[in-house]
Amino acid sequence: MYLVEIFLPQRDNEGREFRSELFSQVREELLERFGGMTAFTRVPVEGLWNTHQAGRSHDAIVIYEIMLQQLDRPWWESYKAELERRFAQEEMVIRVSRVDVI
């Protein structure tokens, strides 16, 4: 089984919050395609990283996750590119892990 985690930024590059409709659209797309998903939206989640140009950067994020029996990598690569376009990001993180469910 696979666990797919989608890390969505809560704010754009100028610090403005994204419209809730963007997140609703992603939720609906995932529900329609996979039949279920989990959203981590209430706990403040913060991503931190160092950059050569700007020093330390951070993002407030929302995490959506889906558990799958099979991984359609080309579909996920295409969906990632679409999310990067919608959220105006140079790169977004979609993490895939193999998991055992008990």
Rank of each mutant, 00 (worst) to 15 (best):
R33P: 13
E84I: 14
E32M: 08
E28L: 12
R98N: 15
V96Y: 14
D72C: 12
T41A: 07
T41K: 03
N13Y: 12
Q89F: 07
L71I: 11
Q53I: 13
R11V: 02
V45W: 04
M92G: 02
F34S: 08
A39M: 04
F23Q: 06
Q70D: 14
I102K: 13
Y2A: 09
I94L: 10
I61S: 00
Q25S: 06
V45A: 09
R73V: 15
G55Q: 04
S24H: 05
M67H: 08
W49Q: 01
T38Y: 05
N50P: 07
M1A: 15
L48T: 06
E28Q: 07
G55L: 03
F40K: 01
H52R: 14
R85D: 02
Q25V: 03
D72T: 14
E84C: 13
N13V: 13
F18H: 05
N13Q: 14
S20P: 05
E29K: 06
W75V: 06
G55A: 04
E91N: 15
T51S: 13
F40R: 03
V96I: 15
Q69I: 12
R95I: 13
L8S: 00
F40I: 06
R95P: 01
Y79N: 02
D12C: 04
R56C: 02
M92D: 06
P9H: 08
G47T: 13
A54K: 15
Y79W: 09
E46F: 04
L22A: 13
R27L: 07
E91F: 11
E77G: 05
E65Q: 11
P44I: 01
R16C: 05
M67Y: 06
Q70S: 10
A39Y: 02
E90M: 13
H52Q: 11
M92S: 07
L30Q: 03
D100T: 15
I61Y: 00
F87H: 01
L30H: 01
F23H: 11
W76T: 07
G15K: 02
T41D: 04
T51P: 04
Y64T: 08
R27N: 05
V101N: 11
E84R: 10
V43R: 04
T38K: 06
A54I: 12
Q70V: 14
F18R: 00
V43I: 15
H58E: 03
